[in-house]
Nucleic acid binder design. Structure first.
Length: 937
RNA sequence: GCGGGUGUGGUGAAAUUGGUAGACACGCUAGAUUUAGGAUCUAGUGCUUCACGGCGUGGGGGUUCGAGUCCCUUCACCCGCACCA
């Protein structure tokens, strides 16, 4: 029986599915191990060979851990809300649910062919009402909570209300909006319900506010910061502008510090942690309050360099700053308005393009220096961001290059406060040990001590305080889209009222079209049945909104990241209709032990998930405040595009070797039309695209050779390799092993089908140890010592390499092992059986089949991992490389029992040493036991 | 500009603690063999030299008996953030 991978793979995939081999049991005596992949968005294009890379690696880990005796949870599901299905719905009218489900079926078929050990009974889909019911439930938990800075955790909002009733908010330290008013208990109790609700929105972890948002006109929706890349939308690359809108947000800023500190204990790559650290962007410094001449308001600025306060010569406000309107003098009013108007219309991208040019305008107002009382002109400048700090800076031209450039441009004064530093050419920005001058009480002090002194001085005079500032912004949570989770809120006037938990899910209504309404409301505004009847607690027709108990429902939906921010918990107990997860299941599985996915989610999914997990932990629902202890980022598999070269202005296509010195245009051709030797199939290409029907191919050596270039895999570049094709030609086990063999899992690498034969040959070679020349070769004979040594070396190496996730070297180790066993003509069951178990995480179908052929009736999946016995490796002698002055000359076979003195004696006695030494005496003989002997002459 | 990462044959790469650099595989060269199978087997394959030898891990320098690995310096490429006060 030869290696018929097609039959074998079908057979075992079927067996695993019907036997439910990979079903994970909640509550089990075995230790648990939770292996998770980032679930896919099921796009219409299906899978290419890059997608399964991470799934294969994690599947190897999952299968390995099962052999090691763990109860493994290895689920899979779909992040099935998202833009492409909705865009498709807008174009064709097909309901996104239908598109999504068709795409999921396609994905599932492709995934099934690769032989993953997923427990499909736990599948989740974020667009399933039974799932998003709990996404909405979490939304409500955040709505009903605030962040208490004294307890440093989220607390139910009811506690806050209780405190307000007793003592107002003056003693409460909660993470809240900067516009929150102060009130005492009497004032609170005197507020009406609406007023109370408005104040509570300043505290809630999910809140409604008028926010400056990133608006993408082309997509017709707002976007979060992480959904914008280089000033344009991540999806589609459309321009993004600023707009003030009333939107739901999530107060992730409250968790900035914990999100930062929590990284310390996570086993994630340093690169990824660094991305999150940068995104959170913690800065230490001070808040300083400047009085404004002839105005009551104070101007608060954040600075990391309060030590340079005596170098302040002007202030700059962001154009959007709240105080601009109030402080602008009548003489400057027109200039200021013109400036703001010019800036306002600009998109982020336009602002970025203008980065180099300096612009600004004087407000006519003056701030007062907190220590000298000097008057400082207040300017407005585009370079100051409204969204960072307080949207205002104290400008210190001598210590900040941007301030320096601005001052020079507008002829503002520059005071040098750094002793012995020349600032004629530019600002001095180092935080070095340079004494200050022209700095009053800070004169003579350098950075560190000046910083300490100035902060204590600011605090004692009440002019400011030490402060921490974060770059991280609260996350906008509303999307003006149809295909997302409905936000479970309705409105009484301006006040949002939550739908009660027991009435969830609030399911997506049917709409006739998926575009915004004619009056600019989100697509849900098209729904006829989208109002809430408070008495009957049900969704009713919008026509009934005039009734006393019927109110309009929220028209925005949740963003794409909502459903993916907690799905890892739901897998623990996916069918629960009473709770988000059974606490018993939670306390068994706790957290993800091994999370595999792309680093592109660093500032999106991976940050939001950590945030939600911390909230759920604070409120007593989750067991751990980090959801994934270990995270591995698989690299991207790149495409190996193929090109033909059209001679310009002709229908002639030149083979790769003939293009030198010719004017040609490279044109992508489908990589499926090219064989492994880069030769183009001319008949196929003519059929493939009508552009080539009239083509004349100019050949070299009777062949047309294509050019190659490594690019991202994409349909438009015709360089997509479908895993189905590989499974057809070589089988899933070859695909699995080859993807691992390509290189380190975390590295990007180009796909090259040509190399796959090496791995395929390995499997055939391995098979031949069992079955060769029409007969089974397996014997019950006791293996030779040499074979056992190879086996145990392999056990050790494979185990170590899996543990350190060096899966590419595992494949090499298998190859070496099989080469050696073949050379030894070893067919011993005692050697080959344990090897099958070692191999089964990598090539599961292959191993299952041979396992069965060896007479086992059960699946190999739960076989115990073979024990490593070092006694088989113990050697009596060893070939020592002998070098002279570090240069290797010969090897010397010595007993391993010998001590260093004996080795030295033996090496000196050797004739070859005598020859090398030429009668001289060695200066030193270095012996590294079992490694090397070096003689220094 | 700031932060992180990577540089090793024609190609993908290996070298876990400083100890025979290039394992394993692709490709290539030569040969054998056949039941023509996406065959198999044998030998060779870093560069250079007829050879002995010499040179080789982006470049330069250093530590060491010995450096791909440690230190300094420099170059190239990739990724993230970027007028962040």
């Amino acid at each position: 029986m030869n290696y018929d991978f097609r039959e074998i793979e079908k057979k075992w995939q079927n067996y695993w599915a019907t036997q439910k081999t990979f079903k994970a049991k909640n509550l089990d005596d075995r230790p648990k191990y939770y292996v998770l992949d980032m679930f896919p968005y099921p796009s219409g294009a299906g899978l290419h060979v890059g997608h399964p890379l991470g799934y294969i690696a994690s599947d190897i880990i999952a299968r390995y851990k099962r052999h090691k005796g763990f109860n493994v949870l290895h689920p899979q599901g779909y992040d099935s809300f998202g833009l492409p299905a909705e865009q498709y719905a807008i174009q064709t009218g097909q309901h996104p649910a239908k598109t999504t489900s068709a795409n999921i079926n396609r994905y599932r078929e492709q995934l099934d062919r690769i032989g993953f050990s997923f427990d499909w009974d736990r599948e989740v889909r974020t667009s399933d009402p039974d799932y998003y019911r709990w996404t909405q439930w979490i939304f409500l938990k955040l709505f009903h909570a605030y962040y208490d800075l004294d307890l440093d955790k989220a607390v139910p909002i009811a506690d806050l209300v209780h405190r307000f009733e007793l003592e107002g908010n003056t003693k409460v330290r909660g993470h809240c909006d900067k516009n929150t008013p102060e009130f005492d208990a009497a004032a609170w109790n005197a507020y009406d319900t609406d007023q109370k609700q408005k104040i509570l929105l300043f505290y809630r972890l999910t809140y409604l506010s008028d926010t400056e948002v990133n608006w993408c006109p082309a997509l017709g929706t707002v976007l979060a910061n992480d959904e914008i890349v280089n000033g344009v939308s991540e999806r589609g690359g459309h321009p993004v502008t600023k707009k003030k809108m009333r939107q739901w947000s999530m107060r992730i800023g409250a968790y900035a510090n914990r999100l930062l500190e929590g990284l310390e204990n996570l086993d994630w790559s340093e690169a990824l942690k660094e991305i999150q650290r940068n995104w959170i962007g913690k800065s230490l410094g001070a808040s300083i309050y400047f009085e404004i001449q002839n105005h009551k308001e104070k101007l608060e600025v954040f600075t990391t360099r309060p030590d340079t306060i005596f170098g302040v010569t002007y202030m700059t406000l962001a154009p959007e700053h709240d105080l601009v309107d109030q402080i602008t003098s009548s003489e400057q009013r027109e200039a200021v308005n013109n400036y703001i108007q010019a800036v306002e219309g600009k998109s982020d991208r336009a602002r970025q393009a203008d980065m180099k040019s300096i612009s600004g305008v004087f407000t006519g107002a003056y701030a007062l220096h907190p220590f000298t009382g000097a008057t400082i002109p207040i300017w407005i400048g585009e370079y100051v961001l409204a969204s960072y700090g307080t949207g205002a800076v104290m400008a210190v031209p001598c210590g900040d290059q941007r301030d320096f450039d601005f001052a020079n441009h507008f002829d503002l004064p520059i005071i040098n406060i750094f002793e012995g530093i020349d600032i004629a050419e530019g600002a001095y920005t180092e935080k070095a040990n340079v004494p200050l001058m022209n700095s009053g009480f800070l004169d003579g002090l350098a950075y560190a001590s000046a910083l300490e002194k100035v902060i204590s001085e600011l605090e004692s005079k009440n002019h400011g305080k030490g402060a921490v500032n974060f770059r991280l912004r609260d996350a906008i949570f509303s999307r003006q889209r149809y295909w997302g989770e409905p936000i479970p809120m309705y409105f009484k006037g301006e006040i949002p009222i939550p739908i009660k938990e027991q009435n969830l899910p609030l399911t997506l209504p049917e709409v006739e079209k998926y575009l915004p309404t004619s009056d600019g409301k989100p697509p849900l505004g098209n729904a006829k049945n989208w109002a809430w009847d408070e008495i009957n607690e049900e969704v009713v027709s919008v026509d009934r909104i005039d009734h006393k108990s019927v109110f309009p429902l929220e028209l925005n939906t949740m963003p794409g990241w909502a459903g993916s921010s907690w799905y890892f918990n739901r897998y623990m107990d996916p069918d629960n209709n009473n709770e988000w997860v059974d606490p018993k299941a939670l306390s068994y599985w706790k957290e993800v032990d091994f999370y595999m996915g792309g680093s592109e989610h660093a500032t999106g999914h991976l940050l939001y998930s950590r945030f939600w997990q911390k909230v759920l932990y604070d409120l007593g629902y989750a067991q751990k405040d980090e959801f994934a202890q270990k995270l591995v980022n698989q690299g991207m598999i790149l495409g190996n595009s193929a090109f033909v070269y059209r001679k310009n202005g002709t229908q002639q296509f030149l083979s790769k070797g003939l293009i030198k010195g010719q004017e040609v245009t490279p044109i992508h051709v489908d990589v499926a039309l090219v064989n492994t030797q880069d030769e183009l199939d001319l008949e196929a290409v003519k059929k493939w695209h009508r552009d080539f029907q009239q083509a004349e191919f100019v050949l070299e050596d009777g062949k047309y050779m294509v050019g190659r270039e490594v690019e991202k895999m994409s349909k438009s570049k015709y360089n997509v390799v479908n895993p189905d094709e590989i499974c057809d030609a070589y089988g899933a086990d070859t695909l699995r092993m080859y993807e691992m063999f390509l290189g380190p899992i975390e590295q990007d690498k180009p796909w090259n089908t040509a190399g796959i034969s090496g791995v395929h040959n390995f499997l055939k070679k391995f098979w031949r140890l069992f079955y060769d020349q029409d007969q089974w070769r397996i014997t019950a004979e006791k293996p030779e010592a040499e074979s056992l040594k190879i086996l145990h070396q392999t056990i050790k190496k494979i185990t170590d390499d899996i543990e350190r996730l060096s899966l590419n070297t595992c494949i090499s180790t298998f190859m070496i092992c099989i080469n050696e066993l073949t050379a030894l003509n070893c067919h011993s069951r005692q050697v080959l059986e344990p090897l099958l178990i070692l191999l089964s995480p990598f090539a599961p179908h292959f191993s299952e089949e041979l396992w069965q052929q060896l007479g086992h009736s059960d699946s190999i999946t739960l076989e115990p991992y073979p024990l490593f016995d070092p006694s088989h490796l113990i050697e009596k002698t060893k070939e020592y490389p002998v070098s002279f002055n570090g240069k290797m000359r010969f090897t010397l076979k010595l007993s391993l029992d010998m001590g260093i003195d004996e080795i030295q004696e033996a090496v000196m006695k050797d004739q070859r040493t005598q020859d090398q030494m030429n009668g001289a005496q060695p200066k030193k003989i270095i012996v590294v036991p079992a490694k090397i002997i070096n003689i220094v002459v």
